[in-house]
Amino acid sequence: MSISIDHTRCVGAAQCTLAAPRVFTQDDDGYSTLLPGHDPADPMVREAARACPVRAITVREA
């Protein structure tokens, strides 16, 4: 599974960080980013993508 964040769409709502805190965090500017060593198979990744209000997160099967 692969996860991508469209940083041009991200508004820093942090819904992904709340839904999947072991995968997502916020950078110094408040925008979403992936944590180093994250597990793309974390069961909450898809929920984080659904929770994003601007649909900036894409999850694809490998």
Score class of each variant (00 low, 15 high):
V54S: 01
A19Q: 08
I3A: 05
M1K: 14
L34T: 03
G30K: 10
M1T: 13
E47Y: 03
C16T: 08
E61C: 00
C10G: 11
Y31P: 06
L18K: 15
T33I: 05
D28N: 12
S2E: 15
V45F: 05
D27N: 15
A49F: 05
I3L: 12
C16I: 07
V54E: 06
R60Q: 14
V54G: 10
A13V: 12
H7L: 14
A49R: 02
M44H: 09
V59K: 03
T8M: 13
T58Y: 01
R22S: 15
E61G: 02
L34M: 09
S4P: 08
R46C: 03
V59N: 09
V54R: 02
P21F: 02
M1F: 06
A19N: 03
A48I: 00
E47N: 10
V23W: 02
S4N: 14
R9S: 13
I5M: 03
G37N: 08
A14V: 07
A14T: 13
A19V: 00
G12Q: 10
V23S: 02
S2N: 14
A41G: 04
A41R: 09
V54A: 09
T33G: 02
Q26L: 07
S2V: 11
H7Y: 07
R9E: 05
L34W: 00
G37P: 06
P43G: 05
V54C: 01
D28M: 12
P40G: 06
G12R: 06
C52S: 07
P21N: 10
T33Q: 13
A14Y: 10
D29E: 12
M1N: 09
D6P: 11
R9P: 06
Q26W: 03
